[in-house]
Design a protein around this nucleic acid. Sequence first.
DNA 1: GTGAAAGTTCACCATATGGCAAACAAAATC
DNA 2: GATTTTGTTTGCCATATGGTGAACTTTCAC
Lengths: 116, 116
Amino acid sequence: MENYKTSLDAAFHALSDPTRRAVINRLTKSPAPVKELAKPFDMGLPAFLKHLRVLEESGLIATEKTGRTRTCQVKIGRLAEAESWLCEQRALWQARTDRLADYVETQMSRDTENDG
Amino acid sequence: MENYKTSLDAAFHALSDPTRRAVINRLTKSPAPVKELAKPFDMGLPAFLKHLRVLEESGLIATEKTGRTRTCQVKIGRLAEAESWLCEQRALWQARTDRLADYVETQMSRDTENDG
DNA sequence: GTGAAAGTTCACCATATGGCAAACAAAATC
DNA sequence: GATTTTGTTTGCCATATGGTGAACTTTCAC
């Protein structure tokens, strides 16, 4: 497995796979054991366990084994970190487009002055 | 290059690399040509171009060549799509924890009734 | 205590990723 | 028109990813 340096690397990587996103989506509704999580997917348990491990190592889910079943649940913090990063980028972009709109407006009113 | 089925696959994959996230961050401030974008990074142009292509194929940026320079800019829509997905998951999780809190509260008040 | 259930580990495979160096193309500059 | 600048293509490499089947462990139920 690759060593993702930052938590964002690992979180976004984990989210880039549809199986893993579906698992997250399922887990937002309630915690669940491995077998139930794996049921909707057309792949063997070993492959599915790899996905779970990617999710766990990214910090997007936590798992705990009691008896012979392993229960998984979402850790909302990591999800929120990723969301924050995206929000920040959108805010920066928005700030720029706002400044640009201001500038264009200023130019237009200046042109109007010159015309009048 | 892998064929990501959905735009979310491609977007999250693109965002899982620190170089590519840095490029997005830079581009939120203003469009820029390839060479300027590549300057902060300790890698050759060919490697950097691969990153740019991943970003472009994911729809997170658009590029246009005029003369010998290629100018890149953020496409905010894709960023917003990814953010929306995360927001949705958080909302689902929140809804559940709210229901859970309600339930616990109900149980507690019932217990109090039984106690009194 | 036998057997099924739920995970887990292992060895293996094809393909994708992320980097390099070198050669090339096209446009701007002198 | 020779040179530099900017980007592009090509071939190559090591490692990561996402899957498989087979063997194994532990726990639960009978």
